[in-house]
Design a protein around this nucleic acid. Structure first.
Lengths: 146, 146
DNA sequence: CCACGGTAGTTGTCATGTCAACCACAATAG
DNA sequence: CTATTGTGGTTGACATGACAACTACCGTGG
């Protein structure tokens, strides 16, 4: 039994949806990178660490809290470790604590206001309250496993 | 003059926004890849070619129509050329036509229903008309240059 | 006719992501 | 006490993306 192709309207929706994310994320990422040298993912990891874990967190927990694959996080951390943004503290061969370094915390603090400004400029300030509410609701719906 | 940090609510919005896109795009991409071996970008290029250009299009035009950098497209096309999904036809040292191959068209046709199904399952069918309208409107707003 | 500026494409390099294979060890079943 | 299984993490290989440097050449101004 064949599946109907997407209608022009459905296609428009799909393209709109696709563009939306890439676009905004790109701008915010570039703003942060330009001002601080941190990439989007760098900033994501650092702020999770600071906010959820008071500066240290177990690797697996960190991965889950970001919706990342363990491998992805491992690679990312290796890169960040080389730049001394974080440290790995091996409690046990199966328990690794990820720890914010002094340098990492400084970078993070420098990046936060840039990030806040950019998110407001590129996202929050452009939408009205109702649209923002819808975004949040839609994100929750789409995030469900199913 | 200092910038206020994002409020918890603002943060929630930001995270919701970030997740939304990655999530859905990931699922649709995996569905297509699993069924046909085409990646998301592969599929994007092929369908643009077929829909906008009747199977052939100038490289630069193609890039613009997808909001891609010329370099990104060039790399992507090189990979696709190796797999015989497209051909490059050099009209002139500065004009390259990208052409769908027979094989590319077959793959595209095989992928279309998968794509349609996946987009419906992971996006369209989960939202009501109003939410979809908002998505489109928001995408337009956020896409503006500013 | 010539110099030159702009446009189209390619290439290299590096950061990021995905996937699968692998390693180490704790806990548990037998 | 083994053997097995599950969990946490690393690694290698490869696809993708961003960015800058480079090539080539058309068109225009002089």
């Amino acid at each position: 039994m064949s599946i109907k192709p997407l209608s022009p309207y459905e296609l428009r929706v799909w393209h709109a949806f696709k563009l939306m994310g890439e676009d905004v994320m790109g701008r915010v990422g570039r703003d942060i990178a330009e001002a601080t040298g941190l990439s989007g993912p760098d900033f994501g990891v650092l702020s999770r660490l600071a906010d959820c874990g008071k500066g240290e967190m177990r690797q697996q927990t960190l991965a889950e809290s970001m919706g990342w694959d363990k491998s992805r996080l491992s690679h990312q951390l290796t890169r960040m470790q080389e730049r001394e943004l974080i440290e790995r503290r091996e409690v046990d061969k199966r328990v690794v604590l990820v720890v914010l370094t002094k340098h990492g915390r400084e970078k993070l603090n420098a990046a936060r206001p840039i990030h806040a400004g950019s998110v407001r400029r590129n996202l929050l300030a452009r939408l009205n309250a109702e649209q923002i509410e819808t975004i949040v609701r839609v994100s929750n719906i789409l995030g469900e496993d199913d």
